[in-house]
């Protein structure tokens, strides 16, 4: 494989981090639990599930239109409070966001299975300051 076209712009030692993060370019939360190629399965307008290209197991998800979900449902019920080094931090719960997104669509077995699969992962939060 030839040299990566972006290698001259990056430095440091890569280290995979399985943590959710807010992508402002797509107004979405991306959560990937394994450093493997992703096969995307679009579930609905809010949720895309990531499957491993190696063995098809679920390795994460993308929650789309995050600010629209927050606007519609409000921070109450989506936010959790914590304290770090004496500073109070408000974060969004990814599970609460997924529940809100699920409520917004028509019920179907596939949706229910996919949302349940996404919610069953480790509890994740993202600081509100990263989103709003």
């Amino acid at each position: 494989m030839e040299k990566h076209f972006l290698n001259e712009y990056v430095t440091g030692e890569p280290e995979f981090r399985p943590e959710p993060w807010y992508n402002p370019h797509g107004d979405c939360i991306i959560y990937q639990t394994a450093d493997e190629a992703v096969v995307r399965e679009r579930v609905d307008e809010f949720l895309t599930v990531y499957h491993s290209a190696l063995d098809n197991r679920v390795i994460g998800y993308q929650i789309k239109d995050v600010t629209a979900i927050i606007k519609k449902f409000g921070l109450v019920g989506l936010a959790v409070q914590s304290e770090q080094n004496g500073t109070r931090i408000t974060s969004i719960s990814a599970s609460a966001l997924l529940l809100a997104a699920y409520e917004d669509g028509l019920p179907s077995l596939r949706r229910r299975e996919a949302y349940a699969e996404a919610i069953s992962g480790p509890a994740c939060t993202i600081p509100v300051s990263q989103i709003c």
């Binding site: 990566h4 972006l6 990056v10 440091g12 280290e15 995979f16 981090r17 450093d35 493997e36 992703v38």
Partner: peptide
């Protein structure tokens, strides 16, 4: 454009995604 913060993040924390920016291009 491929945003600098996006490819930098993938390079640091999600190396396979970073490599697959070749496929994006």
């Amino acid at each position: 454009e491929i945003p600098a913060d996006l490819y930098t993040r993938f390079y640091k924390y999600n190396p396979v995604r970073y490599e697959n920016l070749r496929a994006v291009k």
